[in-house]
Structure formats: C-alpha cells, structure tokens
Computed example of a mutant assay.
Amino acid sequence: MLLDPYLNQPHLPKLSYWVGSFGVYDREETLGEELNKYDPNDPVDRDLLIRRYCLRLLPRETFHHRSAEFDLLEQTLGAPDFDFASVWEDDEDDFHDYWSWPSDWPEITDPRGFFQAIRDTAEEVWHEDLLRSKLPSLQSCREIPERDLGTCDWLFSVGNSQEWKSVFNLAVTPSDLKTPGPVFHKDGFTLSIEGPINHLIFRPSHWPPSTAFTYCELDASVSGISELEFRGSQFAGQLRGVLTRLKVGYYLRMEIGFDCVIECVALHVNIANVVGSYQSKSC
C-alpha cells in the first residue's frame, strides 16, 4: 500500500495536487507577489508555472507518489465531460482545498487545456520516474525461469558491450571478478570491479596469447532502482552475478563475498572506465 508522504495513512491522489502550489493563503506578500508576475493564460508563462511550481519535488515524495498523481490526471483527462474548472474553485469549508489564488490572476480561460499542458510536461520531466513505476516487482523477477548462463559474463552480454568492446573487442570475458563493495547513493549504487581474464572466446587469430590483456578493471553503475533488497555482512570479495534484461530495465542479482546478496530492479545497468592490463593485481 502506498502511504501518504507525510501522514501514516493511504495516499489518495487528488487533482488539486497539481495546482495546490499556486495557493497563496497566508503567503500573499511572498509567493503571491511572485505569482502575480505571471499570466496563467499566456502559453509561455503557463509553461514556466508548470515546470517551476506544478512539478516541484516534495522532500518525502517518491516516484510512486508522482506516478499515482500522474495516472489520476491522465485518467481524468480521458473523461471528456469532466469539469476541470471545478478544481480551481475554492472550498472555504475544507481547509485542504482552500487555496486563495494570486490576487492579480485572471480566470483560467481553458481549464482542461491547463491540465493537459501539465500532463504533457510531466510526461517529459518525470519520464524516468514514470518508467520506474511501471517496472515489474522484485518478486515477479525472481520467478523468471533459470537459464543456462554459461560464463560469469553478466555485465558484458546484456546491453553493455560498447565500453568493453573498445578495449577487449568482445574477445574475452572475465570469470573471477572481485569488488571492494558497493557505494549506495540516491536511486542507485556503483561498484568498482577487477579481476583476471582467464576465459577466451573467439580470440582473433592476430592476437597472440602473449600480447593479450590478462587483467581488467571497470566501474559498474546501477541507477533508476525501483526496488532493492540486500542482506549479509561481507560486501567485499568475489562477485557472482546474473543480469536479466526486462522489457524495460533490468533485474540484477549479485552474490558478493561470503554472505552478501544484492537484488534489484532498475532502469539502467552500465559499465564504464574499462581498463585492460597484463599483470594481475590484488583486489
């Protein structure tokens, strides 16, 4: 169940969410003066108001909340008889729906058009958030039938070949990677990875074994995570992973070190800073 970002109760999307940031009650001399500079019926001003105020990101709001509000807006726009002017009407009996609009603002001449513009701009600005909200659950990804994975080349066989190819020409894949552990950040994490290259596949004839790289280093990044679970205590050490491409995004499962398991569903998994060398190093 999606909870309200500020109250311990179910989150109930409302159309007033989109225009509530224009309410100047008790802020007439601050926000009111600022908003009075703009005409909500002017296309240029309307676009600025939507981007700066309607699509503001609240501190505790997640992409799930934004998606729920967007879905309600899109559903309502699909009802040709809905009266969008009613959303702008003050309800003095309900504090939460009493906004007190800027004093110099004219009546909105095209209420439906205003909300349609919000919808179109939100789809552009919140594109990644809306995609994340549609990713499958972690539990459903765990039910994907197992497949023959062959070697441990999970990063190199699913949509990440260019960085690797520029150094190794897709001729080799490492099978014993190690990492000092992930660094978590907002909506994702990064990994520094290195290991020996001891598995050759389709090595070009002009590559003598003596001149081929024997060691690799790279950085992996996972971003746009919609769901993440991790357990264990030893996050450093040997890395064994499975990366599955979904219709949109990826399902990633990694076993690291002695007992660490990281699982997530994310929009992006990429490798960068690929370096090949001739001598093994210790992780």
Score class of each variant (00 low, 15 high):
residue 2 L to M: 07
residue 2 L to H: 12
residue 5 P to A: 07
residue 7 L to C: 05
residue 8 N to H: 11
residue 10 P to E: 05
residue 10 P to C: 04
residue 12 L to N: 11
residue 18 W to R: 05
residue 20 G to D: 04
residue 22 F to Q: 02
residue 26 D to S: 07
residue 27 R to E: 14
residue 32 G to R: 03
residue 36 N to M: 11
residue 38 Y to G: 10
residue 39 D to N: 15
residue 39 D to Y: 01
residue 40 P to W: 02
residue 41 N to I: 08
residue 42 D to E: 14
residue 45 D to Y: 07
residue 45 D to T: 13
residue 49 L to T: 10
residue 52 R to M: 07
residue 54 C to H: 00
residue 58 L to E: 13
residue 59 P to H: 06
residue 60 R to Q: 12
residue 63 F to T: 10
residue 64 H to M: 12
residue 64 H to F: 14
residue 67 S to Q: 08
residue 72 L to D: 11
residue 73 L to P: 04
residue 78 G to M: 06
residue 78 G to L: 03
residue 80 P to C: 10
residue 82 F to E: 11
residue 84 F to E: 05
residue 87 V to N: 09
residue 87 V to I: 15
residue 89 E to Y: 01
residue 92 E to D: 14
residue 93 D to G: 08
residue 95 F to A: 15
residue 102 P to F: 04
residue 103 S to M: 09
residue 103 S to H: 07
residue 109 T to H: 02
residue 118 I to Q: 01
residue 118 I to L: 04
residue 118 I to V: 15
residue 122 A to P: 06
residue 125 V to E: 12
residue 129 D to T: 01
residue 129 D to V: 01
residue 132 R to N: 04
residue 133 S to Y: 04
residue 135 L to P: 00
residue 138 L to S: 05
residue 140 S to E: 15
residue 141 C to S: 10
residue 144 I to F: 02
residue 145 P to M: 13
residue 146 E to W: 03
residue 146 E to M: 06
residue 147 R to D: 07
residue 148 D to T: 02
residue 150 G to W: 07
residue 153 D to G: 15
residue 155 L to A: 09
residue 162 Q to L: 15
residue 165 K to W: 03
residue 167 V to M: 09
residue 167 V to Q: 09
residue 168 F to A: 08
residue 174 P to S: 08
residue 174 P to H: 11
residue 175 S to G: 13
residue 176 D to N: 08
residue 178 K to G: 02
residue 181 G to S: 07
residue 184 F to H: 11
residue 186 K to M: 07
residue 186 K to L: 12
residue 187 D to G: 03
residue 190 T to Q: 10
residue 190 T to L: 03
residue 191 L to F: 14
residue 192 S to E: 15
residue 194 E to S: 15
residue 208 P to K: 14
residue 214 T to P: 00
residue 215 Y to P: 04
residue 216 C to K: 00
residue 217 E to Y: 03
residue 217 E to F: 05
residue 222 V to P: 04
residue 223 S to E: 14
residue 224 G to R: 09
residue 230 F to L: 15
residue 231 R to L: 09
residue 231 R to Y: 01
residue 231 R to G: 14
residue 233 S to A: 13
residue 233 S to F: 07
residue 237 G to L: 10
residue 237 G to V: 06
residue 240 R to A: 03
residue 240 R to F: 08
residue 241 G to H: 02
residue 242 V to F: 00
residue 243 L to T: 00
residue 245 R to I: 03
residue 248 V to Q: 12
residue 248 V to L: 10
residue 248 V to T: 15
residue 249 G to W: 08
residue 253 R to Q: 14
residue 256 I to T: 05
residue 266 A to F: 00
residue 268 H to M: 02
residue 268 H to F: 10
residue 281 K to G: 00
residue 282 S to L: 04
residue 283 C to L: 08
residue 283 C to P: 00
